[in-house]
């Protein structure tokens, strides 16, 4: 479903992705972890081309992202993206945030789009917040609206870039639950997160990145109990000790 072939990316002289090779299969849930600055956010931002790459190739469903005839807008419509800072539209209510893309990009009628949105708000557990503006929602509620907004386009892939890092501890779980449900329904997901409990429970595979490279890759069990690289062991000892 998603394939990276020797992908390299630089920010100026900073080499942020170094020869990344990766395959994510349909229905697979992959968690990407690693220290800050390791390139994990950049990695998933490349998947819907929010970041361009300088060499190598990324394929989505067999389509090359570098293909000049690629319809990038249509491709992005198939890939949901959830940001650390939610990025809801502040001038629109939760309902309007969700129906905008289905109505404008998919040309779905308003009643139909609102029906989809109502169902999604129920699914993420905040059916009573349709009329609320982002500023009047808690962080956890905003992130759930953001997930509903992404799901409204009925994407084949969902990408999460540290979706719980900006949240208070008691709000983290409400967002993780929604994500676990999604994974349970067979959604293809790539999740950058520091939530190791979520990774252990939900991920099919965990990648550990450092300095622009994937240095460890395996099932949650192998990753947590028997990591091969000393760097991974060091990282895990730091984040699992408390």
């Amino acid at each position: 479903m998603i394939e990276f072939q020797s992908v390299n990316k630089w920010y100026g002289s900073l080499h942020v992705l170094r020869g990344i090779n990766l395959r994510i299969e349909k229905g697979e849930v992959v968690v990407v972890c690693g220290p800050s600055g390791s390139g994990k956010s950049t990695l998933i931002r490349c998947i819907n081309r929010l970041e361009p790459i300088q060499s190598g190739e990324i394929l989505i469903d067999g389509k090359r992202l570098s293909d000049p005839s690629l319809d990038l807008t249509a491709l992005r419509a198939e890939i949901g993206f959830v940001f650390q800072q939610f990025n809801l539209y502040p001038h629109l209510s939760a309902m309007e945030n969700i129906v905008l893309a289905p109505m404008k990009a998919r040309k779905i009628s308003r009643p139909e789009a609102e029906e989809i949105a109502t169902r999604l708000l129920e699914r993420v557990g905040i059916p009573d917040k349709a009329a609320s503006y982002p500023a009047n929602l808690s962080g956890g509620q905003q992130q759930r609206v953001a997930i509903a907004r992404a799901l409204a386009m009925q994407p084949k892939i969902m990408l999460f870039d540290e979706p719980t890092s900006a949240l208070d501890p008691e709000m983290i779980n409400e967002v993780l639950e929604v994500m676990s449900d999604l994974a349970g329904e067979g959604m293809t997901m790539a999740v950058v997160t520091h939530e190791m409990g979520f990774a252990r429970r939900v991920a099919h595979r965990i990648l550990f990145m450092d300095e622009g490279q994937i240095i460890e890759e395996g099932s949650p069990q192998t990753f947590f109990e028997n990591p091969s690289s000393p760097r991974t062991k060091q990282f895990l000892s730091k984040i699992l000790s408390h």
Partner: peptide, 29 residues
């Protein structure tokens, strides 16, 4: 913030639609 723009693009809106429905309405306010 640039991420506001990215959020709209990532839902499948075109650049023109992103300006029309998200960026300009916020900027005018």
């Amino acid at each position: 913030p640039k991420t506001q723009f990215e959020a709209a693009l990532s839902t499948g809106l075109t650049t023109a639609q992103t300006y029309r429905f998200v960026i300009i309405p916020i900027a005018l306010r």
